[in-house]
Design a protein around this nucleic acid. Sequence first.
DNA 1: TGTACATCAGTGAACGCGCGTTCACTGATGTAC
DNA 2: TGTACATCAGTGAACGCGCGTTCACTGATGTAC
Lengths: 199, 199
Amino acid sequence: MRYSPEQKKTTRRKILDAASRAFREHGVDGASVSEIMAEAGLTVGGFYRHFESKEELFRAALEKAMGETLALMQDRRIRRGDRGTHGQEWKERAAGLYLTPEHRQMQETGCPIPGLSAEVGRRDETTRQSFERSLLEIAREMALRLEPDTSDAEKQARARHEAWGFLSTLVGSLLLSRAVDDDELAEQILAAGREASAR
Amino acid sequence: MRYSPEQKKTTRRKILDAASRAFREHGVDGASVSEIMAEAGLTVGGFYRHFESKEELFRAALEKAMGETLALMQDRRIRRGDRGTHGQEWKERAAGLYLTPEHRQMQETGCPIPGLSAEVGRRDETTRQSFERSLLEIAREMALRLEPDTSDAEKQARARHEAWGFLSTLVGSLLLSRAVDDDELAEQILAAGREASAR
DNA sequence: TGTACATCAGTGAACGCGCGTTCACTGATGTAC
DNA sequence: TGTACATCAGTGAACGCGCGTTCACTGATGTAC
């Protein structure tokens, strides 16, 4: 077999997609390269034609998952034909979409931040920096939704600050709801998160 | 060698202490039983005289670490000779102690919730239930600090609700600050968490 | 009180297993003439 | 346009390693008489 370079890109995308789901669901150590390749419809040996190591795969898969989360925030704005909701109204809508029992169960396709941030914190500089870049894009987008007036730098700085607080509450609440066994308690935690984050 | 049963308890405590630090620092898969035993001044073989599996050790070590966090909250109250601060004032003090650069660096001895909740979420019922019990104790203690009037059940329910939101913000903020590489950005995230959590 | 025996905490080597990575190979497709 | 050769994506077995766990052993201390 030789490439069409088209074909190679498609395969890479398949591996990345399988990896980004597997890492979210099982964590880095819980997802093996063989399993990921099988999920992508391939065998292990071919892996190193696409990535130089599992660590590089993790970085790329995480970046992809973070990109999906960002795209969700942006899509919602675009789809509405206008600039969408803003400020307080947006916060409530966003928290209402993020802090749900469905998202709690949907680790594999949901936001990677609650489930993978702790792992990122234990990895090397390169991986942490890569995650940091994605996180900054998300915070920037959030700030824009909190304060659409981009002409006032002071206002944007305050919005960025608010965005970090808002994101912390969303992430913490989903994280705790997932760590707990009882579904009712989990829902209480999510409800408390919805309320606290929108304040 | 035979026991004094005293001696055995001391050894168990040493293993548990080493484990609870190692798991917080390196995660469950990142901390090996051999390393933990070495850290406790022992060799691997003896491990199974004290714990039936690594998973049981994890549960016990996590419970211990959660107990330490709870004790910190309670100690502060007792040490002051009165019932300590409450409500808004307590929130600000607690957030000011929790969301610091020092706590960000101090994974090994700090609060286990940000670093290990995601792992708990991927483990079995038994482990999740054990964590849930510890978490409930912490939420209960927090509710007491937010609303010391225990006679009014309605007030206590609201306080519990507020406690979950408060805890979510603390945990999320520390988690994010640890996942980024840049110290300045980390401090911004912590500052935003301090502000958001105290609202 | 002194002695013989039983217990079992702790040792360190060994076991089996799954992991990330490497490697010789295959064969479809691109390129050179 | 047709043919020979080179490339390299993908295969599947093999490698070395570290892991959790087991096991035969040891010897200090508890218990029985």
